[in-house]
């Protein structure tokens, strides 16, 4: 009887371990470098050209010039086509390049560019851009690109943005547990909220 039991335990153990190994082998939960999937955008938007350093041929435009809602809303916002055209109608030097031509095609057809979402959080999560930007950029005087980069990576070196961080709950909490100074000068620190309902809805 015990022999049978032992044998069955052994067998079950074997099956479980083999199947879990197989499951692991088929689909790894996260890639080693936490990179998100490559997202095909309708226009290959060069973030490096717009926001990159001047030394590397970038225009050093503030993130919040285009993603203007980040400091005052839950979402950062994808800029409307008007914003692109607002500058580009006056930039003759690149007017005939393929990407800008495509941009003006959308403009003349009066259609929005169907940008794809890169940083897609699950539906049960509430993330507020405003709170983070207010804290890091306005209260602590951190450079905008650094503050955005905590979650979005070094976007100014990318062309099409790609997810750089895991954006998992454990990863969020790893930062929320740290002590952050409340503003640029004070020595008082606070950490991010750890209430379930702050982020889960």
């Amino acid at each position: 009887m015990y022999c049978f039991l032992r044998l069955s335990v052994l067998l079950v153990g074997l099956i479980v371990s083999v199947s879990s190994y197989a499951a692991n082998a088929v689909q790894p939960l996260t890639t080693a470098d936490d990179l998100g999937p490559k997202v095909e955008q309708p226009i290959e938007f060069p973030h490096d050209r717009h926001a990159g350093d001047a030394a590397k041929g970038g225009m050093q435009i503030n993130c919040m010039y285009c993603h203007t809602y980040a400091r005052r809303s839950i979402v950062a916002g994808i800029p409307p086509l008007q914003k692109c055209i607002g500058c580009h109608q006056n930039i003759e030097s690149v007017r005939e390049t393929p990407r800008i031509k495509k941009l003006f095609e959308y403009w003349e057809a009066k259609k929005a560019v169907p940008w794809k979402k890169v940083h897609d959080l699950p539906d049960f999560v509430r993330f507020n851009h405003e709170r983070h930007i207010q804290r890091f950029v306005f209260a602590q005087n951190k450079p905008v690109q650094e503050a955005c980069g905590y979650c979005h990576g070094d976007v100014k070196t990318m062309t099409v943005a790609r997810r750089q961080k895991p954006l998992s709950m454990g990863w969020c909490v790893s930062c929320h547990q740290k002590d952050h100074p409340v503003d640029a000068t004070s020595t008082k620190t606070t950490h991010g909220p750890n209430d379930c309902w702050q982020c889960h809805k």
Binding site: P122, F124, P193, D195, C196, W197, H200
Partner: peptide, 15 residues
């Protein structure tokens, strides 16, 4: 289901 700092009784669906 937990108690929040605001005195709410929270229910986290995905947990």
């Amino acid at each position: 289901t937990n108690h929040t700092a605001d005195g709410l009784n929270s229910q986290v669906y995905n947990r």
